[in-house]
C-alpha cells in the first residue's frame, strides 16, 4: 500500500445524527483520491446525512471527518432537493455562471473566456441554446442538467451528489452518468447516492452500503451481495424511538460516568465493537482501496 498518498476522505469512527439519534453510526473508512463511490442503502440509512456531514452542513456528534488533501473550496455538493426558488427571475446562463464563484467571487465580472466556458458547460449537458431562458421554464430533467453544468464549472476535486437521478427520465440519467464517468476519468473523487442497484453494478467501481450502521465498503461486486443487502434491510427496520444511549467508544475516549445503568455497557474496555450486538461488518468497512486504473470507455 502506498503510504505516501493520503486518502481524500478519512472517516474516523464517525457518528452523525439528529437529536442524538445517530443516522450514521460509527463509520470508519478511507476513500482514496480519484475513487468513484456509490453510496447505497435503504431509505433512512443515513446516506444523505453522510453527504451533509462531508459537506460541512452537519457537525459530527462523534468521531471525525478528515479531508487531508482537499484545497479550500475544493468541495462541490449537490443536495437532493436544494433550496432553489424556481420562480426567481434569473436566466439559465446566470444560474450556471454561479459555478464560477470561486474565480469571480462577489464582485468580479465575467471575462469573454469565462462566458465561453459557461456556454461550453451548457453544451456539455445538452442544453446549448437555453442560455437566456428563465430558470422557471425548465423541466425537472433540464433543471438537473443545468445544476450539473454549474457543478462542472465549480471544477472541484471532490464532488458529492445526493440522489442526482431522483425523478429523472432514463435518457437524462444516461447522459448524467456519462458526465459523472467523465469527471471520474479526470481524477476527481466522487460520492453519489444512488438507488438503482443495477446502475451501481454497471458504472460504479466502489460501493458503500449503509443502514445507519456501515454494512460494507469496497469493490461493488463484493458489497452488493444478497446477504449484505438483506442485512442492510434488517438493520434499517430496527429503529427504536426510545433507544438507549450508545456507549461504544474508541478506547482512547473517556467513558461517561453513567455507564453502569446501561444494558449494553461494557466493563471490559474492549478495543472496539467487534463481536458487539450491533457491530457492523467490519472487515469490508476498513478496506483500503488501491487506486484503480482509469476507465477506458470510449467517449462520445
Amino acid at each position: 500500500m502506498n503510504r505516501l498518498a493520503l486518502p481524500m476522505i478519512r472517516l474516523d469512527n464517525l457518528t452523525l445524527g439528529y437529536d442524538r439519534h445517530p443516522a450514521v453510526h460509527h463509520l470508519s473508512a478511507e476513500i482514496p483520491a480519484g475513487a468513484l463511490v456509490a453510496v447505497v442503502g435503504p431509505n433512512g440509512a443515513g446516506k444523505s446525512t453522510l453527504l451533509k456531514g462531508l459537506a460541512g452542513e452537519l457537525r459530527p456528534i462523534g468521531g471525525r471527518i478528515l479531508l487531508p488533501e482537499l484545497p479550500a473550496g475544493g468541495l462541490a455538493y449537490m443536495p437532493q432537493r436544494g433550496e432553489i426558488d424556481h420562480s426567481f427571475p434569473v436566466s439559465v446562463f446566470d444560474v450556471v455562471a454561479m459555478g464560477l464563484w470561486h474565480e469571480i467571487g462577489a464582485f468580479g465580472g465575467l471575462s469573454r473566456e469565462q462566458r465561453g466556458r459557461v456556454r461550453a458547460a451548457l453544451a456539455a449537458v445538452g442544453m446549448a441554446g437555453f442560455e437566456s431562458r428563465p430558470i422557471g421554464s425548465l423541466s425537472g430533467g433540464q433543471l438537473q442538467r443545468a445544476r450539473f453544468a454549474r457543478l462542472m464549472l465549480q471544477d472541484a476535486p471532490l464532488i458529492l451528489l445526493d440522489e442526482p437521478f431522483a425523478a429523472i427520465d432514463s435518457r437524462t440519467v444516461d447522459d448524467l452518468v456519462e458526465l459523472i464517468l467523465g469527471w471520474h476519468d479526470e481524477g476527481r473523487t466522487i460520492l453519489t447516492v444512488v438507488h438503482d442497484l443495477e446502475q451501481v453494478r454497471r458504472h460504479f467501481p466502489t460501493a458503500l452500503l449503509l443502514s445507519r450502521e456501515p454494512v460494507a465498503f469496497g469493490p461493488t461486486a463484493e458489497v452488493l451481495t444478497p446477504e449484505r443487502l438483506a442485512r442492510a434491510r434488517r438493520l434499517s427496520e430496527a429503529f427504536d424511538e426510545h433507544a438507549h444511549e450508545c456507549h461504544i467508544e474508541e478506547l482512547t475516549v473517556a467513558v461517561a460516568p453513567d455507564v453502569g445503568a446501561h444494558p449494553h455497557a461494557h466493563d471490559d474496555g474492549h478495543a472496539h465493537a467487534e463481536g458487539h450486538g450491533h457491530a457492523p461488518a467490519r472487515p469490508a468497512t476498513h478496506a483500503h482501496l488501491a487506486p484503480r486504473p482509469r476507465r477506458g470507455l470510449p467517449r462520445h
Binding site: A55, L75, G82, E83, D85, F88, V90, V95, M98
Partner: peptide, 14 residues
C-alpha cells in the same frame, strides 16, 4: 441574488 435563488449553494461556495 444567490441567497434568494439558491441559499444552499451560496452556503456551499462561500
Amino acid at each position: 441574488v444567490m441567497e434568494c435563488f439558491d441559499p444552499a449553494f451560496l452556503r456551499g461556495v462561500s
